[in-house]
Amino acid sequence: MSWFKRESAPLDAPGEKRVRTEGLWVKCDGCRQIIWKKDLDQNLNVCPTCERHFRVDAQRRLELLFDDGQFEVFDNGLRSTDPLSFVDLKAYPDRLRQAQAETGLSDAVINATGKLDGRHIVISAMAHNFIGGSMGAVVGEAITRAIERALQHRTPLLVVSASGGARMMEGIVSLMQMAKISAALARLDDAKVPYISLLTDPTYGGVTASFAMLGDLNIAEPGALIGFAGPRVIEQTIRQKLPAGFQRSEFLLQKGFLDAVVHRKELRPYLARALNFMAAAA
């Protein structure tokens, strides 16, 4: 009964054949579509089905905005001093270290210069993944320096906001950054150097109540949440549910607080067009 015996080499052990899919696919919160991550990346992190704009980190944001993704960073070594020696459930320096390790950034903003449509521009991009993109003394200083650099070289300035607001762990010092940045913007305004504010998801609190709303043009990406007070605080204050679409960029456009809501694909052409308009003054 030799045909029960296998004479040749045994078959490969039937090890399970698995392909790792983790991290390769993303589910869209807007339309529940499962998207291949590479497709999403190639589509500027916008869902190809429903056009929902996914958040992009500061580094990628700069790559998307500058010509050929080329830029030079400046004033990026600033680090917080923990001015209040703040401790809540965790010490603030520990939170900082953790955020620095996770993001590779020293704080919640990257300053960069380069060209957009062939024109020199200074861009400050906030990093929402660094302690909620909150603004403490370092973010305040970095953005102020970006403004001063734009002023010095008479280069247009773009600030990309993505922040929960002032950084509570730096208390009053964070609050004062709002005044500091706004004062620097007053000088930029006096000098007629263009300043465009791009509000992305989410922009709240002290950031909305200072530089994010002070652009010569205030523009936002579709569907971004933008406001002064957070929705939960408002609900608790007025004790009623908030209407659908409240504090989305389309809502702010309708109420008259944005010049335009611009699709991520249209951002560069829109900015180029705006800079062209403002170029005569600059």
Binding site: S210, F211, F228
Partner: peptide
Amino acid sequence: PGLGAEERGQGEAIAR
């Protein structure tokens, strides 16, 4: 922090 305050631009008013 109210609904009307947001609709009328609390953030913009303070910023300005």
